[in-house]
């Protein structure tokens, strides 16, 4: 038995040491959306730790108190059916916890699906992020430039990513700015992000997409607005234009380094026409015929609750 306890101690020491390391990326947010999510995560870890401790304590208590070796030989455990009050408590407390978490969860859902809080009065920067095996293409239609595998963004300005894919489903994820969303081939998803502070962040495709998936990453650099504008100007002056042939070449499966172009592929290779409900201002898409059907992609009678336009 001693060895087992020793092993257990090692396990818990290791876990404690691990938590003491530098902050985990998701819990070190640099933008309002990531902060909402990190707060939710910390809150739920807190509540869940409470539940875990209660269960562990109860288990330890019954195990210590009711071991056969601690009882007299002729002790006969009683026959007990359920007790309404006890069971009501067992249902009631989890219901309360779940209700509270649901409340938080619903609120956060609307937060992460809208322009980041505190950024509402600013003009959003729209960036089309499309993936192909195994690269990311970033088109800045307003600025008229396009990059491959790296993303420069201004701080303190809402970012509206339009996500789609040339090929398998991928997932656009910059952990420190906010959670991920799918990029798919037949519709455009919208992801709202924002960066509070300048810095370099890791971005990647999080959804398995074949052989080159592990290296399907991109660099994100957030910089003050003025610096960003400077960069745009510089690109416009120095970069080659992206042509149709060049873009088709880029779409070939493989890995590419960082690349920069003027113009965007949106002009000759427009994004898919479908839209999903990713946008807070979904009204602007509601005239879109496709929306309803893309959404009702479930297979049960319960479709009704899914088709909430």
């Amino acid at each position: 038995m001693k060895i087992k306890w020793a092993l257990l101690t090692i396990v818990f020491t290791v876990i404690t040491v691990l938590t003491g390391c530098e902050p985990l990326m998701v819990l070190d947010p640099k933008g309002p959306q990531a902060e909402t999510q990190a707060n939710d995560i910390m809150l739920s870890i807190g509540i869940m730790s409470f539940i875990v401790i209660v269960v562990f304590a109860l288990l330890a208590f019954v195990l210590i108190k009711y071991r056969a070796s601690k009882q007299s030989k002729d002790y006969e455990p009683p026959h007990m059916e359920g007790n309404v009050i006890v069971e009501a408590i067992c249902v009631g407390i989890p219901v309360l916890i779940v209700a509270f978490l649901s409340f938080v969860s619903v609120q956060s859902n609307y937060k992460v699906e809208a322009t980041p809080k505190g950024y509402e009065d600013k003009e959003p920067l729209v960036i089309y992020a499309s993936s192909s095996n195994w690269k990311w293409h970033f088109s800045y239609p307003e600025e008229g430039i396009e990059t491959v595998n790296y993303l420069n963004i201004p701080t303190d300005r809402p970012l509206e990513f339009k996500l789609y894919s040339y090929g398998p489903i991928t997932s656009f994820w910059i952990p420190q700015l906010g959670g991920q969303k799918y990029a798919m081939s037949d519709m455009v998803n919208t992801l709202h992000l924002g960066a509070d502070v300048p810095g370099e962040f890791m971005g990647r495709n999080a959804n398995f997409s074949g052989k080159g998936f592990a290296e399907n990453t991109f660099d994100v650099e957030a910089m003050p607005e003025a610096e960003f504008d400077e960069w745009v100007e510089e690109v416009k002056e120095t970069a080659e234009p992206v042509t149709e042939e060049k873009f088709d070449e880029l779409l070939e499966p493989g890995h590419l380094g960082r690349m920069t172009f003027t113009g965007t592929h949106l002009e000759f290779n427009p994004p898919p026409t479908g839209h999903n409900h990713g946008s807070s201002d979904s009204d602007e898409h509601s005239e879109d015929e496709h929306t309803e059907h893309q959404e009702s992609s479930d297979s049960d009678e319960k479709e009704t609750e899914h088709n909430n336009h």
């Binding site: 059907h293 009702s296 992609s297 479930d298 297979s299 049960d300 009678e301 479709e303």
Partner: peptide, 9 residues
Amino acid sequence: ATLFATYFT
């Protein structure tokens, strides 16, 4: 039912 649901989709 699954076939019908797929059909409607």
